[in-house]
Amino acid sequence: MRRLVYLLPLVAFVVLVGWFVLGLQHDPHVLPSALIDKPVPEFSLPPLPGFDRGLASSDLKGKVQLVNVFASWCLPCRAEQPVLVRLAKDFGVAIQAINWKDKPSDAVIWLRQNGNPFQSVGSDPDNKVGIDWGVYGAPETYVIDAHGRIRYRHVGPLMPFDIEEKILPLIRQLQG
C-alpha cells in the first residue's frame, strides 16, 4: 500500500504524456461556432457599390448553401478564392458572401481580379453583422442547411482537401 503512493507521480506523468501524444493527432485550430445548429442571426446587409443584391437572413432559407466571409486585405482569402470559384462552377454549390471589415470599393476591385463565385454579397464594413455571426477573422466559411441553420463553420482558407473531405460530403448529406 505504502509503495503504491510512491508510484502515483509516475502514473500521473504517464497519463500526462498520453494526453500530449493524443494532442499531436488533434487539430486545435478547429473553432466550432457557438451558433452550430442554430438559425442564422437576423440581419440585412446592403450590396457592394454597382451590385444589385445585398444579403439578408431571409436569403439563407430554402436550400443548402455556403456563406463565405472575406475581405480584400486578407491574403488567405486570395488563396482560397479559386477553390470557391471551382466549387460554384463545377459542383454547382450556392455561395453567398459577407464582405467583412473592408472598404466596399476595394472589395469590388478585388472580386474583379480574383473571380466572383458569389450569388450575392452583403457589405459589412464595420463588423456589425460579423459579431452576430461570431466571426473571428477572414476567411471563414459557414454551411447553412435548407432551414437556414448553421451546420458547420470552417476557419481559415478552404483548400481542395477541405472541400473533398468535409464540405461536399456535408452538403450532400444535408441535401440527402
Binding site: D27, H29, L75, P76, A79, V155, G156, P157, L158, M159, P160, F161, D162
Partner: peptide
Amino acid sequence: MALGRSPGGGAPW
C-alpha cells in the same frame, strides 16, 4: 507562400 501544403489545410495560415 506555401499555403495549403499541409493536410490540415490551415496550419501555415
